[in-house]
Write a protein that binds this DNA or RNA. Structure first.
Length: 492
RNA sequence: GGCGACGUAGCCAAGUGGUUAAGGCGGGGGUCUGCAAAACCCCUAUUCGGCGGUUCGAUUCCGCCCGUCGCCUCCA
């Protein structure tokens, strides 16, 4: 496949260097709930992984957690918990959010704090080699020693300084020198080192963890576009200076960032939408379709309206997966659509086009079914290709989507109306389920009642039940072989 | 100030130097249905921010302009 490489600034043919594709993706700093921007990034690399696996590659996917840093420490102190407790809490939350998004788990989630002794070794070696120097309990990387510093972000040291936002820090030889080891202030969690107690800088963590888990050369290093500089630039500087092996990562892959309204969604602006918040209102399929309906390198604006539209689009795909006909003779051949899908994904993960192939296939399935063809094979194909994008084609269950109280109230109400209008038999059905504790039982009973009403042509009453269920988010479809109901996304 | 991205229908969003500019949502009409819903059929950009240039031919390449956004500081 062709894959855009930030390092070269072009698309290149992706061929792994060995048996397994070694993919390292920068993880989160667990000091707060993860937001939909994190979800976007996770989904992008999940799809890259799924597609490579679909193509028959074996992968080793590693993603770190930066479980100690200034913000974690500050926040933990504020809440009166240890940094450990705070980090663990948000790591757990992140993991469960990603599970709900159907993101495949990485093969390893190393913690920064577990790798500190190794980082100390690496830093010491960098000092020995002249790439770093201690200063007042800190250790800095000497950027002037690295001839190709700036090659990833495509800027020169001079132009960085011309940016004029570099602040002069006491003890640094060069304003762009960055921290490898940070001396601890009193009361902060600290680890021993030859330079005094402290903790590692952010960048050295990823270099060291990647090195330890995946070796000196990665196939793919991923992350958000906002990490290109300084984080990934510095990782390259550290890793290549330490190992002498170039390149540290063969492909640098960066996803575009998610904006909220006019602004980038960022912690500093505080305009965050949490992953769990988004999942309360939208299915994971809708979220994934939304993320993947624009190219992964483009910026994307988060919008609830856009997601609601994707919810309907997801339903369209699901509808194509309904029961196959059993009587058909010839079968629909999905291979044309599979080719389209693969061609699209091969072109730097062109998921918008891949999704279009999915919709074309779904459309063709519906047409073929009307023609009386067998569509089972094509449906399997749709499921299989959808799975490459991490789509589940599952509706949210009634428990997740429907609240019981308004339904129970409606149920009672209908029972009373039935009684009042002389439908004592049907009112009895309500009574016999009057203590129903789940939404499904209530809906099913109402559907049975409605069927009876339709049979005796009391359409007004039947339609009332339908519309009142619709008000509660239950959509009805009367098909040949009975009525199907589903939760419909309420308009946000 | 430096580096970079983008501007395609009502909305979201692919794409190509030259046959009909994907797909989704929305909208209109029709088939089916007791009515709906779903599904199917038809329609919904003579046109790709503006102005020049290159070319037989540009939405696609180049230049300028206008507009939007990102990075350069913690950030997926």
């Amino acid at each position: 496949m062709r894959l855009y490489n930030t390092l070269s600034g072009t698309e290149e043919e992706f061929i792994p260097s060995g048996e397994r594709v070694k993919m390292y993706v920068c993880g989160i700093t667990p000091y707060a709930s993860s937001h939909v921007g994190h979800a976007l990034s996770a989904v992008v690399f999940d799809v890259l992984r799924r597609y490579l696996e679909f193509q028959g590659y074996k992968l080793q996917h590693v993603q770190n957690f930066t479980d100690v840093d200034d913000k974690i420490i500050a926040r933990a102190a504020k809440q009166g918990v240890t940094y450990r407790e705070l980090a663990d809490r948000y790591i757990q939350e992140y993991t469960s959010d990603m599970d709900l998004l159907n993101v495949k788990r990485a093969h390893a989630y190393p913690l920064a704090t577990d790798a500190i002794p190794r980082m100390v070794e690496v830093i010491a070696d960098l000092i020995d080699k002249g790439y770093a120097y201690p200063s007042n309990g800190n250790v800095y990387f000497r950027v002037t020693m690295d001839d190709d510093y700036g090659k990833l972000s495509h800027r020169s040291l001079d132009s960085m300084i011309a940016g004029a936002r570099v602040e002069v820090v006491e003890g640094k030889e060069h304003p762009m020198d960055f921290t490898l080891w940070k001396a601890a202030k009193p009361g902060e969690p600290a680890w021993e080192s030859p330079w005094g107690p402290g903790r590692p800088g952010w960048h050295i963590e990823c270099s060291t963890i990647a090195l330890d888990h995946l070796g000196e050369s990665l196939d793919i290093h991923g992350g958000g576009l906002d990490l290109v500089f300084p984080h990934h630039e510095n990782e390259i500087a550290q890793s290549e200076s330490y190992t002498g092996r170039i390149p540290f990562a063969r492909f640098w892959v960066h996803n575009g960032l998610l904006n909220l309204g006019e602004d980038k969604m960022s912690k500093s602006l505080g305009n965050l939408v949490g992953v769990s918040e988004a999942l309360e209102h939208h299915s994971s399929d809708a979220l994934r379709l939304y993320f993947l309906s624009s190219h992964y390198r483009s910026p994307l604006n988060y919008s609830a309206e856009g997601l609601a539209a994707m919810e309907r689009a997801a339903e369209r795909l699901r509808n194509a997966l309904r029961q196959d006909s059993t009587t058909g003779n010839d079968a629909l051949d999905p291979s044309h659509y599979e080719k389209q899908f693969v061609t699209a994904m091969d072109a730097d993960l062109n998921t918008p086009q891949a999704i279009a192939a999915l919709f074309d296939l779904a459309h063709e399935i519906n047409r073929a079914r009307e023609r009386g063809q067998k569509v089972g094979q094509a449906q399997n194909s749709l499921r299989k290709l959808g799975d490459v994008l991490g789509l589940t084609f599952r509706e949210r269950t009634s428990q997740e989507a429907l609240s019981l109280e308004p339904l129970a109230e409606l149920f009672k109400d209908i029972g009373a109306t039935l009684n009042a209008s002389g439908h004592h038999k049907l009112a009895g059905w309500v009574n016999s389920h009057s203590d129903a504790q789940d939404a499904a039982t209530i809906v099913e009973t109402l559907l049975a009642i409605r069927r009876e009403l339709r049979q005796v042509r009391e359409y007004d009453f039947a339609d009332t039940i339908r519309s009142r269920l619709a008000d509660l988010g239950v959509g009805l479809e009367d098909a040949q072989d009975g009525t199907v109901w589903k939760h419909r996304q309420s308009v946000v």
